[in-house]
Simulated assay, not measured.
Amino acid sequence: MAIFTQELRFSTRGEIDLVDITREVEGVVRESGIQNGHVVVFVPGATGAIVTIEHESGLLEDLKRTLRELVPKSANYLHDRIDDNAHSHLRATLLGASECFPVVDGRLMRGTWQQIFFVELDVRPRHRHVIVQVVGE
């Protein structure tokens, strides 16, 4: 069994910035040379998330609006006594820090309209990195 790990690095524009990383993840899978297994896409951090969603502008705006409605910025959170980003942490917890995809015949398997996005949930622009690990044969 082989393991291939690579980091993706990029900058974000701040709160609820959506960065499509699908092509980059596909590139890591190709570069790994692994034909069959799985790939995990993981963000180390408490205010970022990895999601799959169709890359359609209306749907992306719907996601942003839904996050704002589900976890509003100002809701008297206890964590805000320490920092001003409790809502960022809570949104990240709801979305999750990773996704796992099958690799079959050297290709990342995903639905026709299923793209992989990093979601910036912190209140300010950040320099981010995402770990992509391919495991298999």
Rank of each mutant, 00 (worst) to 15 (best):
S57D: 13
G58T: 03
G58H: 03
G58N: 06
G58D: 08
L59G: 01
L59Q: 06
L59P: 00
L59H: 01
L60N: 04
E61A: 10
D62C: 00
D62V: 03
D62S: 07
L63D: 05
K64G: 10
K64M: 09
R65I: 12
T66S: 08
L67Y: 10
L67S: 04
L67T: 08
R68K: 15
E69N: 13
E69L: 14
E69K: 10
L70Q: 11
L70W: 13
V71L: 04
P72E: 08
P72Y: 03
P72V: 01
K73G: 02
K73N: 01
K73S: 03
S74P: 00
S74E: 14
S74N: 14
S74K: 10
A75K: 12
A75T: 00
N76L: 10
N76H: 14
Y77I: 07
Y77S: 04
Y77N: 09
L78W: 14
H79F: 07
H79G: 01
D80E: 12
D80K: 11
D80H: 12
D80V: 06
D80T: 06
D80R: 13
R81E: 13
R81K: 15
R81C: 01
I82A: 13
I82G: 04
I82C: 07
D83W: 14
D83I: 11
D83A: 13
D84C: 09
D84E: 15
N85A: 12
N85E: 11
A86G: 02
H87K: 03
H87D: 14
H89E: 03
H89V: 04
L90R: 04
R91D: 07
A92P: 05
A92R: 03
A92M: 06
A92Q: 07
T93G: 09
T93D: 00
T93I: 11
T93M: 06
L94S: 05
L94G: 05
L95Q: 04
L95R: 04
L95K: 02
L95F: 05
L95I: 05
G96E: 04
G96A: 00
A97C: 01
A97I: 10
A97N: 08
A97M: 02
S98L: 00
E99D: 02
E99P: 00
C100V: 15
F101C: 11
F101G: 12
F101D: 02
F101V: 10
F101Q: 09
P102G: 05
P102A: 12
P102V: 11
V103F: 09
V104L: 15
V104E: 12
D105P: 00
D105G: 11
D105I: 01
G106T: 02
G106Q: 09
R107S: 05
R107A: 08
L108I: 06
L108Y: 10
L108M: 13
L108S: 00
R110M: 14
G111W: 10
G111C: 10
G111E: 11
T112N: 09
T112Y: 12
W113T: 02
W113R: 06
Q114E: 14
Q114M: 08
Q115N: 15
I116N: 11
I116R: 09
F117P: 06
F117V: 06
F117H: 12
F118R: 09
